[in-house]
Amino acid sequence: MINIDGTLLAQLINFIVLVILLKIFAYKPIMKLLHERKEKIASSIEAAENDEKKAKQTLDEYQKQLAEARVKAQEIVDKAMKRAQQEYDASLAQTKQEIEQMRQKAKEDLARERTRAAMQLKGEVVSVSMAAASKIIAANMNNDVNQKLVGDFIEKLDKDKLGGLSC
């Protein structure tokens, strides 16, 4: 037990043999495996980080696009509303103008009609007056004098009566 003999040398050789065997059977394969696992974990982490980055990028892009789309939609709506307003204003103005034109035209027509009626009336009154006067006075008067007389009368009529008529 406590005596030292050749066993010591044998144990040395035994142990060296064991070291070689264990190096072949345990150390090398396990170190290789640990290395592989390390690489795999590293690559997995890297891949996961890449995926995350990509996902974040895509999300950012989507959000940006969404915001852009929202702004664009708002623009379209604004533009459409503006155009509608413009069209409405334009059509309103046109209608107003048309109404104004029609009113103007109606006024003109009315005035023209009144003038015509007045002229017609004047002519008729002259001839009726002439007839009446010729019948009344039954005298052969100078035609020129007649005309003047009646004309003056009518002028007076125009000024005093016809002009005061509301039409």
Binding site: I2, N3, L8, L9, Q11, L12
Partner: peptide, 9 residues
């Protein structure tokens, strides 16, 4: 349990 082994190592 023997010095041969332990001292050897």
């Amino acid at each position: 349990n023997t010095l041969n082994t332990n001292l050897g190592l």
